[in-house]
C-alpha cells in the first residue's frame, strides 16, 4: 500500500505483471475513487465551461456524452487533463486527485458574475472495469437493459442507472467502462464483479496499462509549463468555433503558428534495461540532448522497455539513451503501443 495524495492505495494485489496481463486478456476492476468529481450546474454552466476548457463542451449533444479536455492557464500550459460529461442537470468534470485543490480554486476563481454552482461530489465512489470481458462482468452486475444499452455505445458515451453514471471510458486502451457510484452500491458491484471472474488491479498495472495505451499522466507528460502541442493533446484543443474565447487560446495559437515546440513520441528500446522518466534522449553518439523521457517502464505486452518522451521534432527514426553507462537504442514512433490487446507500435 502507498500513500497516493492522501489516499491509501495498493500498488498491486499480488503481481503487477499478472494484473496487467489479466486486463489485456480478460477483465480487471479498479478502485479509482481517488479521482475528483466536480459537478457544474446553473444557467451559465455551458458558457462557463466553454470559456474554462480548451475543448468545446458545446460539441456534446447528448446527455452522458463525454470528452477529453485540457484545463489551460493563460500562457497555454496544462493545469490538468480531465473528462467532461453532459448531464441532464448540467455538466460533470472528472479531474485528477493530485490537482484537486488547485483545480477547484481555479474553477471558482473564474466564475465571476456567472450563474454557476461548483460542487465536489465526494459522496461518489469511482470504479473502472476494463478488458475484453468487461461486458460479461457487467451482465452479472447490472440488469440486462443496462447491459444491452451500454454495449451499443461508442467510446466516451454513457447512461444513468438510478444514481449511477456508467460511461464507456478508461485508462487502459481496452474496451471498458467507468462507474460513478454511491459508496455502498460500489461495494456490492465490486463483490459481484469479483464473483463473475474480474480481478482487482492496483496502481502499478494501471500505470503500465496507460503507458502502453499512450495515455498521459498528469505531472509526467504534462504540467502547467507544457503546452498541449508538446504532450499529444493538441487534438483536444478546439479552434473550430472561432468566436469562442477560452483561457489559453491566444498562447496556444501563437505557439502553434511559431512551430517551435517539442513533440511527444513513443520509444521502443532494443535492450531490456528499463528507461525511466527524466532520462535524456540523444539522436546520435554526439550525445547532444534532444529530449527527455516523461514515462518509461517495462511493457508486459511487448516484453520490452518502452517510454514516452518529449523530443525535438525530427525525421530521424531512432534515438538512444544511456542506462548505467551503456547505450540503449530505440525506434521512434507514435506515442501508443497497444490497443485492445494488440501491439500497434
Amino acid at each position: 500500500m502507498v500513500d497516493f495524495n492522501g489516499w491509501e492505495m495498493p500498488i498491486h494485489y499480488g503481481s503487477q505483471l499478472k494484473e496487467h496481463e489479466f486486463v489485456r486478456e480478460s477483465c480487471g476492476i479498479f478502485d479509482v475513487s481517488h479521482m475528483t468529481i466536480v459537478d457544474i450546474e446553473g444557467k451559465d454552466a455551458k458558457g462557463f465551461l466553454r470559456f474554462l476548457l480548451a475543448n468545446d463542451i458545446g460539441l456534446l449533444n447528448q446527455d452522458f456524452d463525454g470528452m477529453y479536455s485540457a484545463l489551460l492557464n493563460e500562457s497555454g500550459g496544462v493545469i490538468d487533463d480531465l473528462i467532461a460529461y453532459k448531464l441532464p442537470s448540467g455538466y460533470r468534470l472528472v479531474v485528477n486527485c493530485a490537482t484537486r485543490e488547485s483545480d477547484i480554486e481555479w474553477i471558482d476563481s473564474h466564475k465571476g458574475s456567472m450563474e454557476v454552482t461548483v460542487s465536489e461530489r465526494d459522496d461518489l465512489s469511482m470504479i473502472a472495469i476494463q478488458g475484453p470481458h468487461t461486458f460479461d462482468t457487467l451482465s452479472n452486475c447490472f440488469s440486462s437493459n443496462v447491459y444491452s444499452d451500454l454495449s451499443k455505445k461508442r467510446p466516451f458515451q454513457g447512461l444513468q442507472e438510478g444514481e449511477t453514471l456508467i460511461t464507456t471510458t478508461g485508462y487502459t486502451g481496452e474496451i471498458g467502462v467507468e462507474l460513478m457510484i454511491d459508496g455502498e452500491r460500489a461495494k456490492a458491484v465490486w463483490k459481484q464483479a469479483l464473483l463473475s471472474g474480474a480481478k482487482p488491479i492496483g496502481l502499478g498495472a494501471r500505470d503500465t496499462l496507460r503507458l502502453e495505451a499512450g495515455m498521459n499522466l498528469y505531472g509526467s507528460e504534462m504540467d502547467e509549463n507544457i503546452s498541449p502541442l508538446e504532450c499529444n493533446m493538441a487534438w483536444t484543443v478546439s479552434l473550430e468555433d472561432e468566436s469562442r474565447d477560452f483561457i489559453g487560446k491566444e498562447s496556444f495559437k501563437r505557439k502553434k503558428e511559431e512551430g517551435d515546440f517539442h513533440v511527444l513520441k513513443g520509444l521502443l528500446f532494443k535492450d531490456r534495461s528499463i528507461v525511466r522518466s527524466n532520462q535524456v534522449i540523444y539522436f546520435d553518439e554526439s550525445k547532444e540532448v534532444k529530449g527527455v523521457v516523461t514515462s518509461g517502464s517495462y511493457s508486459p505486452t511487448l516484453k520490452k522497455s518502452i517510454a514516452l518522451a518529449r523530443i525535438t521534432p525530427s525525421h530521424t527514426e531512432t534515438c538512444m539513451t544511456e542506462v548505467r553507462g551503456k547505450i540503449n537504442k530505440a525506434s521512434i514512433g507514435e506515442p501508443k503501443f497497444v490497443r485492445e490487446g494488440k501491439i500497434i507500435f
Partner: peptide, 8 residues
C-alpha cells in the same frame, strides 16, 4: 521489489 523484469 515486486515483479523483476531485467537483470544485469
Amino acid at each position: 521489489l515486486g515483479d523483476i523484469v531485467f537483470v544485469e
